[in-house]
C-alpha cells in the first residue's frame, strides 16, 4: 500500500524542482524556441510572398522590355527606310544639280568656244586684211602698170582667202 501513498518529502522536492524547472523554462526556454520558430515561419511566408511579387514584377518587366525592343525594332526599320529615302533623294538631287551644272558648263564652254572662234575669225580677217594689204602693197610695188591684172589677182586672192577661211 505504501506505493499508493504519496510521500510528503517527495511531494516537497517534486514541487520545488518542478516549480523551478517550470519557472526557468517558461522564462528562458520554450517561449524563445516557439517564438523563434513562429517568427521564422512568418519570415518564410513573407519571403514567399516577396518572391511571388518579385516574379510578377520580373515577368511584367520582361513583357515591357520585349515591347520596348519590338518598338525599337520598328523604329529602326522606319528610320532606315527614311534614311534610304533621304539618301535616294539627296543622290537624285545631287545628280540633277550635277547634270545642270555640267550642262551649264558645257553651254558656257560652247559660248566661250564660239566667242573664241569669232575672235579667231575676226583675227584671221584682220590678218587677212593686213596680209592682203601687204600682198597688195607688194603687188602694187611690182605691177602697178597692169591694173587689170592687179585687180584680178586681188580678187582671186581674196576669194581664196575667204573660201579658205570659210572652210
Amino acid at each position: 500500500m505504501s506505493l499508493l501513498l504519496p510521500e510528503s518529502g517527495l511531494v516537497f522536492w517534486m514541487l520545488l524542482s518542478f516549480g523551478i524547472v517550470f519557472f526557468i523554462l517558461a522564462k528562458f526556454g520554450f517561449p524563445a524556441i516557439v517564438n523563434m520558430v513562429e517568427n521564422r515561419k512568418k519570415y518564410i511566408d513573407e519571403s514567399l510572398e516577396n518572391a511571388k511579387e518579385a516574379n510578377e514584377q520580373l515577368s511584367k518587366l520582361k513583357a515591357e522590355s520585349s515591347a520596348i525592343i519590338a518598338s525599337a525594332n520598328k523604329e529602326q526599320g522606319r528610320i532606315l527606310k527614311e534614311a534610304m529615302q533621304e539618301r535616294d533623294k539627296i543622290i537624285n538631287e545631287a545628280r540633277k544639280k550635277a547634270e545642270f551644272t555640267a550642262q551649264k558648263e558645257l553651254e558656257d564652254a560652247k559660248k566661250q568656244i564660239q566667242m573664241e572662234k569669232d575672235e579667231a575669225i575676226r583675227d584671221i580677217r584682220r590678218q587677212v586684211a593686213v596680209l592682203s594689204v601687204d600682198i597688195a602693197e607688194k603687188i602694187i610695188r611690182k605691177n602697178l602698170d597692169e591694173e587689170k591684172k592687179q585687180m584680178d589677182m586681188i580678187d582671186r586672192m581674196l576669194e581664196e582667202v575667204v573660201s579658205k577661211s570659210k572652210n
Binding site: S17, F18, I20, V21, I24, L25, F28, G29, F30, A32, I33, M36
Partner: peptide
C-alpha cells in the same frame, strides 16, 4: 530536471 534544463536551454540558446 537537470537533463531537461540542459536540453531545452541548450536548444533555446541556439536560437
Amino acid at each position: 530536471c537537470i537533463l531537461l534544463l540542459i536540453i531545452i536551454l541548450g536548444v533555446a540558446n541556439w536560437y
